[in-house]
């Protein structure tokens, strides 16, 4: 195949897949601790807005990135309050969070629509960036993309090889056993909600700081929900999350290119592609799982820890 066509598409796939990747890893982190948070879409949007506003007023992309993560973690803390303190239904609470979060970002962001803010630009890596094909596809990206390259193995290492990672997994698999071993599963789940929320916020911040540099309403356009689906597709494994996120990035980039090239296909049909693919991807994941039986989900996912009498 012609590399002149493939390389730009690959680079665009990585770029538009990166916010989904951050959000997927964030939701995975939270779910590993046993908490299902369907508020990703709302948290991501709040993160995007907080990052955008911070960048607008301080001019510092790094501060803005941190603000995006913190804002999403803060919104996620509401889910923690409802589910970990008041033992509310996790599915419904997450939905409420999405309704609230998208509403907040929409209401507070209205005066900013159309404004632009400084963010992250392309950063060609020495040596790696000069590689043929791989260089322009993967190593002439922005700093946040490189951060995601580091985050994936770190995520894997944290859960597979470190003690805190093991404890978090225990809170998601067998909270009662974790409590019997002297751990505090509620505190661990709080860590899961806040840590995961921070990562989701980085995904949102990527959208406003590196992807568009511009505020529009509904910047996420369902990416938060796609992230929730990708956690299932990835079977709670970070490596597969990369594959899923870049696949989606590729589809979104492909769809945008077709539109820009002036195709005769109606845009509403092209816009269906990512959502239709999400359904397809879940069907494929289900068929694959069907062979092995059993679910990969954490054992106590979305089950609240009730006080003992």
């Amino acid at each position: 195949m012609n590399p002149d066509l493939i390389v730009p598409l690959l680079a665009a796939a990585v770029q538009s897949g990166t916010p989904v990747l951050f959000a997927t890893l964030g939701e995975m982190f939270t779910e590993k601790a046993g908490v299902l948070n369907l508020g990703v879409e709302g948290m991501m949007l709040c993160g995007a807005l907080a990052a955008f506003v911070t960048s607008l007023y301080t001019g510092s992309p790094v501060l803005a990135l941190a603000a995006g993560g913190l804002a999403a973690a803060l919104v996620g803390a509401l889910h923690g309050m409802v589910c970990l303190v008041f033992l509310g239904n996790q599915v419904v609470s997450g939905l409420a969070l999405t309704i609230l979060g998208t509403g907040l970002a929409d209401a507070l962001g209205t005066p900013l629509v159309g404004r632009t803010a400084p963010g992250f630009g392309p950063l060609r890596l020495p040596v790696l960036g000069d590689l043929p094909v791989l260089g322009p596809a993967f190593f002439q990206q922005d700093a946040l993309v490189y951060l995601s390259y580091l985050l994936v193995p770190a995520f894997w290492f944290f859960f597979a090889r470190t003690r805190p990672g093991l404890r978090l997994t225990a809170a998601g698999e067998y909270p009662a056993a974790a409590a019997a071993a002297g751990l505090d599963p509620i505190a661990l789940r709080w860590a899961g909600v806040l840590g995961g929320g921070f990562l989701v916020g980085l995904g949102g911040a990527y959208l406003s700081l590196a992807y568009t540099h511009l505020w529009t309403s509904n910047l996420t356009a369902g990416r938060g929900w796609i992230a929730v689906a990708l956690v299932i597709f990835a079977a709670w494994r970070p490596g597969r999350a990369v594959a899923g996120a870049w696949l989606f990035g590729g589809i979104m980039a492909f769809q945008l290119r077709l539109q820009a090239a002036g195709t005769t296909l109606p845009s509403s049909l092209l816009l269906m592609l990512p959502y239709a693919t999400t359904v397809l991807v879940l069907v494929v994941a289900a068929l694959r799982r069907g062979a092995s039986r059993g679910s990969d989900a954490p054992e106590a996912l979305s089950v609240n820890i009730e006080p003992e009498d």
């Binding site: 419904v92 609470s93 969070l97 509403g103």
Partner: peptide, 27 residues
């Protein structure tokens, strides 16, 4: 001149508060 999204903020808050409030019905 409140943005339309304020309605969604209220709906989200109501749902969160009701979810938390149901705790007191069970415990």
């Amino acid at each position: 001149s409140v943005p339309a999204a304020f309605g969604r903020i209220l709906e989200g808050l109501i749902l969160l508060c009701v979810l938390a409030g149901q705790f007191f019905a069970t415990f």
